[in-house]
Design a protein around this nucleic acid. Structure first.
Lengths: 262, 262
DNA sequence: ACGAATATTCGATATTTTCGAATTTGTTCA
DNA sequence: TGAACAAATTCGAAAATATCGAATATTCGT
């Protein structure tokens, strides 16, 4: 089946459901909320059509409607469902205590992430004591080739898989230190694999340094990674070595905890 | 418009969207996942109908399908959307640092909650150091009349609103200490209001004691509450007094932080 | 109280969903 | 290896339901 744009598409999708989900995604991109007219404009459907869809979403609390402005936002029920999904990652219970210890030890930000669809998905975050908040948050996605988490996860994939990710996502430069050629990335990933940890040195944000280490599931596959992130001025020399050792050790602890519960 | 059950319903809802959302709710209740046949049975629709709906949900990652069992579960995209919703509570950034301090001070579990639809919705949790994990989690709902958070939130509502909640939710007994009469609850809420904090003494779970204190938004309304929960054996006498004072102080700190940002 | 801007309802039309039956896929056990 | 079963998936006809633009109602600002 071929549509008017010439794209092949599965015919078994339900149009109205598809449209409702698109509305949620559109709303997700505008945290301040949108009016009915804006949504209708954005997705190119008549207001009355959007109205029917969004009324349904509202009635089920997937969308909330501000009673001052009448604007629509993502609703509280998504928060509840999202929490259920997060709880379903059984990595979480194993990882959190260890991550807390790591955070306490150095006072830096600790992350837990996994690969999803060629990107790093941030599953948990323990923020640094300092006010300084880094550009990450639970639920956020970042490219794999420039973060400590991502490089660790990539380094433990087959060459074919790495190629697939690159062809899907490219190697965008977030800073001038970001690795942007396939050859250099390959080299870096080999280094990561050999050393057992990844170092992101301002590749995602100038002035930010980050150590990532692999977490293995029961079967030994690297599905997750943890990282410690801090300012370059706090992450160098002897202290950096300490962070590296502690991060690797913490990751191993989590792997062992995962193995224990099978 | 009146349907066959005699219930009045808005006619403008989109049937297929409604059904898709019901599927998500059904899946949310079974964390281990469900087969197509099970879902179809549960909601009483033909398998082929459910298949169309769930395929759409799957294609947008609202649902994931295990490739071993073929079972359907809630998908990763709900986690992402849920995180966005959570981030939109601007209470979070103000509350977390203070909650962490409180957790560090006593080593007990700290919660942040809000009222939603006559129940306490848990927005954040910092778990105790100990392995002992309490029956709470982010995204969970509990009754208002028997938790520290809930009683604080109720105590700051009008009598009419309290009545409405009771008529909607009743006063179910979770333990033998739970308050189950309207008169006793009224008395208790007056006490809570006067003292400025709520004490849950095994009303939600035997052996668990919990101190709740109100958080005020910019306009002075009590929209949120925080609590510290621990075992009765750790929460009595002088230490309980310390916890109470610290919890109230922490709640005030959060209120002030909220006021500052307007 | 008026006008403008927005949300909501209406009703005819036909596209799309729906449903049960038929088919395919996958798994278990001989 | 293959037969028998159980599950998911596809099919196609029938019509119910979503869709759309126009009409109406509501809200807001001045």
């Amino acid at each position: 089946m071929v549509n008017k744009n010439g794209k092949t598409e599965k015919s078994s999708r339900i149009q109205s459901v598809e449209r409702a989900l698109i509305i949620l995604d559109v709303l997700a991109s505008k945290s301040e909320g949108m009016s009915l007219a804006q949504i209708s404009e954005e997705i190119g459907l008549p207001k009355s059509t959007v109205h029917g869809l969004i009324t349904t979403l509202r009635d089920y609390d997937y969308v909330s409607q501000s009673n001052e402005t009448g604007n629509y936002k993502l609703g509280i029920h998504l928060f509840e469902l999202g929490s259920k999904v997060q709880r379903a990652f059984n990595i979480r219970d194993a990882a959190m205590p260890v991550m807390k210890k790591l955070n306490k030890q150095f006072g830096e930000t600790v992350h837990l992430g996994a690969e999803d669809n060629g990107e790093v998905l941030y599953l948990e975050k323990i923020a640094a004591d300092s006010i300084f908040s880094i550009m990450s948050d639970v639920g956020i996605r970042l490219p794999m080739h420039c973060s400590g988490l991502g490089k660790v996860l990539l380094a433990n994939k087959s060459e074919a898989e790495v190629k697939r990710v690159i062809s899907q996502r490219g190697l965008p430069a977030l800073t001038k230190r970001t690795i942007t050629t396939q050859a250099k990335l390959k080299e870096e990933l080999q280094r990561v694999k050999k050393r057992g940890y990844a170092l992101d040195d301002g590749e995602i944000m100038e002035g930010l340094r980050c150590v990532g280490a692999p977490v293995r599931d029961e079967s030994g596959k690297v599905l997750y990674a943890i990282s410690v992130s801090g300012l370059v001025k706090d992450m160098y020399g002897k202290r950096l070595d300490e962070v590296i050792n502690a991060t690797i050790q913490a990751a191993d602890e989590i792997s062992i905890a995962l193995k224990k519960r099978g």
